[in-house]
Amino acid sequence: MIKSMLIILLSAMLTDNFVLSKFMGICPFLGVSKKLDSSVGMGMAVTFVMICATLCTFPVYTLLLAPMGLSYLRTIAFILIIALFVQLVEIIMKKKMPALYKSLGVFLPLITTNCAVLGVTILNIDSEYTFAESLVNALGAGLGFTIALVLFSGVRSRVENADVPETFKGVPATLIAASIVSVSFMSFAGLVEGLFG
């Protein structure tokens, strides 16, 4: 039980990292990773929304859509639930927790239509995870996203100061740096099997 949870967590975090090997959430990955503190804030906001989105969408799918044979409606249902929920959290956070809102809440509007959030909810259904496994998968995916963002913000601050050819300055250089970080994440392949196999 615990072993299978750990396998899901580590796979989602490292071997199948959401950003660097599944290519989800590239927009915030390239957009907000300029500074360390904003990377942490964005990462935490995404993790929080992923877990909450799974909390909301999983019961709706298993209790409502699947028994009624409406599973094809999941894309529409999920995106609406996520959009509604994020808006709600933002309003509550702004009123009740202004300090938290300042560090996390400011990123919420930007991640409503983030493909990583919708991706993780659909992936949970497609992989036929149980409710607990889905939550662990969402946690792992969010943490993996945070790790990728934090690591990349470090790499990026070096790239910004480096002397790159004129044609590559800006986004092309950032993408090539991302490619190198992605290569380093490839070394995690086999880690999970090695630990638990």
């Binding site: 915030p28 239509t113 983030n114 800006g170």
Partner: peptide, 13 residues
């Protein structure tokens, strides 16, 4: 010049 940054500013929300 290549674009200098890509941001969530591009995202419609």
């Amino acid at each position: 010049k290549p674009p200098q940054s890509v941001g969530c500013a591009g995202c419609p929300n």
